[in-house]
């Protein structure tokens, strides 16, 4: 029996590994989010017609909106079960700071939502007639942007824990805050298609990622404590 150093890395790792293992044990949820993403994207050609020039033009926007909605649907997974079965209380009084634990949980959430979406995105992009270069930019923008969606989403998910109408309420809180990510993310691919410099968009997403990584654990930890009080 040994006591482990209560270091931030250990806390992040502990929470991350555990949530990842839970996601692996219930694979269904991870796959469902990916299938949802594919289906939403596939609806657009059916709705606006299969004209290839139009599809190509709207592809980045469609894929980003679909990614955003998929992430939105998975937000309850971050805290709702832990809240219901008493785990969240245990985490809140753990010697590890709450901010560290929620950081691990957000990372695990991204691993099981944003990352898989970024991986399947190129296949969908081909359906919309995008070239390799544009696909690369979309994947890169999703890689940089979806972690921010997990972070902002975690604040909303924590604030609405145990509140009636929780998931639609989460969407109301979170969607306006998602707008900058959507603009810069979809904008990067659009810029690359228009032959304009897209690195500024990606840099802004990267800046958002850094800012989120610094600020979101504190905000989420505060929100969780409010929910438990």
């Amino acid at each position: 029996m040994a006591n482990v150093a209560i270091s931030p890395e250990n806390g992040v790792l502990l929470a991350f590994r555990r949530d990842l293992r839970l996601a692996v044990r219930s694979k269904g949820e991870v796959i469902q989010a990916m299938v949802f993403f594919v289906m939403v994207v596939s609806l657009f050609p059916l709705a606006v017609g299969a004209e290839s020039a139009l599809l190509k033009r709207i592809a980045p926007g469609v894929m980003w909106v679909a990614a955003l909605l998929s992430v939105l649907l998975t937000l309850p997974r971050i805290f709702a079960n832990d809240y219901a079965d008493g785990t969240l209380e245990q985490l809140a009084i753990s010697p590890y700071p709450m901010a560290v634990i929620v950081a691990g949980k957000m990372l695990a959430h991204w691993f099981t939502t944003g990352l898989p979406l970024a991986i399947v995105a190129p296949v969908l992009g081909l359906q919309f007639g995008l070239g390799a270069h544009e696909l690369g930019v979309i994947v890169l923008s999703l890689m940089l942007g979806t972690p921010v969606l997990s972070m902002i989403g975690a604040v909303g998910a924590a604030l609405t824990l145990g509140v009636r109408g929780g998931s639609i309420l989460t969407a109301l809180l979170v969607l306006p805050l998602y707008i900058p990510v959507l603009i810069f993310g979809a904008g990067a691919a659009e810029a690359s298609m228009a032959g304009i410099d897209y690195t500024a968009n990606l840099s802004l997403l990267g800046a958002g990622l850094l800012l989120g990584a610094l600020a979101s654990p504190l905000a989420v930890a505060a929100a969780v404590k409010i929910a438990l009080d």
């Binding site: 604040v155 604030l159 809180l173 306006p176 805050l177 707008i179 900058p180 603009i183 810069f184 904008g187 802004l204 958002g208 600020a215 905000a219 505060a222 929100a223 409010i226 929910a227 009080d229």
Partner: peptide, 24 residues
């Protein structure tokens, strides 16, 4: 408390939102 936290998070995002919309 939840409302207070939400407006703080929201207001921190307001300049970013304004900037992004202008950019867009």
């Amino acid at each position: 408390k939840a409302g207070a936290l939400l407006v703080i998070v929201g207001s921190a995002n307001v300049p970013i939102i304004y900037f992004s919309v202008k950019w867009w």
